[in-house]
Nucleic acid binder design. Structure first.
Length: 158
DNA sequence: GCCAACGTTGGC
DNA sequence: GCCAACGTTGGC
């Protein structure tokens, strides 16, 4: 099993949206590095943290989900009415991929970015590397478990 | 809203 | 292949 962190702007798609839908495609990835990771590494059964980016206030990890379908052509690339429409995409030579995710839980509190930065054990996390802008990054099992404990212990360094 | 960092495009 | 110009991401 592998562990991922996936970013979404909550005004686009939030943990509450996923809670309501229970299951959703994860679309709109338009970065080749992320695409390759999605296509070549992300597998059914992998766990992924849901991260709220660009929030203005509570930026951080807000919940947990599971991959339930591996990479398939992202339908939004062919949809001229979508923000994610890509005129250079061609159905016979897919450029962009999506996966499906399933809601597992919303944490009682967000694990804030500032809090993650304070943890020495997380200093190697791809998310925290300077200049990182990838919307999907990989976590080690230790990082994953450590963050889960942070999330589930309300009194821990809030 | 600002801006640093990174990615993409396209002229040459 | 170089690199300037432009676009995007995302924290603050």
């Amino acid at each position: 099993m592998q562990y991922w962190l996936m970013k979404s702007e909550p005004n686009e798609f939030s943990i509450d949206d996923l809670l309501t839908k229970k299951r959703s495609l994860w679309d709109g990835i338009r970065n080749y590095q992320v695409r390759n990771m999605l296509r070549d590494q992300v597998r059914v059964g992998d766990q992924a943290f849901f991260y709220h980016s660009n929030t203005g206030k509570e930026t951080g990890i807000v919940g947990l989900m599971e991959i339930v379908r591996e990479a398939y052509p992202d339908p939004t690339q062919f949809d001229a009415t979508s923000n994610y429409f890509d005129p250079k995409s061609n159905p016979s030579m897919t450029r962009w991929f999506a996966v499906d995710v399933k809601f597992i839980k919303k944490f009682n509190r967000p694990v804030l970015l500032s809090e993650l930065r304070n943890e020495k054990k997380l200093s190697r996390m791809a998310l925290l590397k300077k200049g990182n802008r990838l919307s999907v990054t990989k976590l080690s099992k230790n990082e994953f478990l450590f963050i889960l404990r942070l999330a589930e212990n309300k009194l821990y360094r809030v």
